[in-house]
Design a protein around this nucleic acid. Sequence first.
DNA 1: CCATAAAGTTTGAGTCGTCAAACTTTAGTT
DNA 2: AACTAAAGTTTGACGACTCAAACTTTATGG
Lengths: 220, 220
Amino acid sequence: MASETVENYIKAIYVLCRESPSGEAGVVRLAQEVGVTKGTATSMIKRLAKSKLVKAPRYSGVTLTAMGKKIALDVLRRHRIIETFLVSTLNLDWADVHEEAERLEHALSPRTLDRLDEFLGRPSTDPHGDPIPSASGKVLELRGKALSAFARGAKVEIVQIMDQDRAFLKFVAQSGLKPRVRALVQDVSAQGDSITLRVTRGKSVTLSRSAASKILARLQ
Amino acid sequence: MASETVENYIKAIYVLCRESPSGEAGVVRLAQEVGVTKGTATSMIKRLAKSKLVKAPRYSGVTLTAMGKKIALDVLRRHRIIETFLVSTLNLDWADVHEEAERLEHALSPRTLDRLDEFLGRPSTDPHGDPIPSASGKVLELRGKALSAFARGAKVEIVQIMDQDRAFLKFVAQSGLKPRVRALVQDVSAQGDSITLRVTRGKSVTLSRSAASKILARLQ
DNA sequence: CCATAAAGTTTGAGTCGTCAAACTTTAGTT
DNA sequence: AACTAAAGTTTGACGACTCAAACTTTATGG
């Protein structure tokens, strides 16, 4: 059984690989994500490589092996089911839930996880719209395109918020943007560095390009 | 904030002190409870003493200080609320729940704990009948007498099972004995080494003295 | 009252995960 | 091609927690 620390590294590597165009995770970003120095990250990567959970050519990017990916999806499943529980059953705040799940995800037996999943009605996505991997390790990825990729006049439905940062989530929630909400792309600035949405029966919101790129939507 | 390990030692010391007539915990029993060697327990006790969480005169028993007791009750509160959740909401088995709560109790923020407590309707006891300490650290102790202390003919109501051993709990549950169940003391053997109960609208059960001493009841 | 078992302590060593700081490699300028 | 900043690695050390095994103290019962 992978230790809590190992699980955290693996999960971070998974997320970073998903985010980066090269499909590899860098040591510096990884260290940052896990909250350690880069030296520490390097030595942990070595240990992970020794246990065949990652591939890490020297002075190059890190990727997960099949075994590593399996662990990552398992952790992610636990994480997202817990987040769903915290929001939909305990009514905790959308934005606060990530850190809490971060700790709980390592303390849940398979059996309890399954009971929880059952209790929640076997949800397919968490409150951020992130898909919940199945028990057998399958995930639906890319259920939408970045908001920044839509043109003026598009009628869209938000599907996913791809960031766990509290401040960002608070801002997004405040704007009324969350999964399943519908909106109209009212304007796209000339330089394409901002986008204005009109939320159905709500106010307008202007998002920077970087914000818009972290919110996924699809045509209604 | 006390580490997970420290919390486990403190909780074990609390429980052992409650159990022992002298009100003190022995190193060997403590080591056994926590699952380490006695040498390890000794050195941890030293650390706990240095942080003023326990009093431990050399070559003598360990007791908690006020600070230590506060932590113990806090951990116990978390533990018992989680057990209640696992049994009453997720329908997990009474006997399986202890180990699970053991892990989860260290990963719950005060806020989430309170939401969970609220969700459960602020229960006063857990599924074993153990009282849940209040958020301010108060506990109702001794809500009943050992079954072994009742005389033939007594009509009793089970209030608490004072053991976390899986096998014992399975046996007790199988006999239909759990908190709030009513029974009649049908017979007490001459030597007082066994007791026979007739559970209301159920079958009769014979308990050894040691089993009966771990089940608390009160007169109906 | 003293031998001895049980309880408790000490010591030396090991693992895990971490840091700071010195070092090496890579990759992007000019 | 040479310089340099950024990325990655190595080293030595540390704290938390653990063990096994040797040791000391306490309690007990013959």
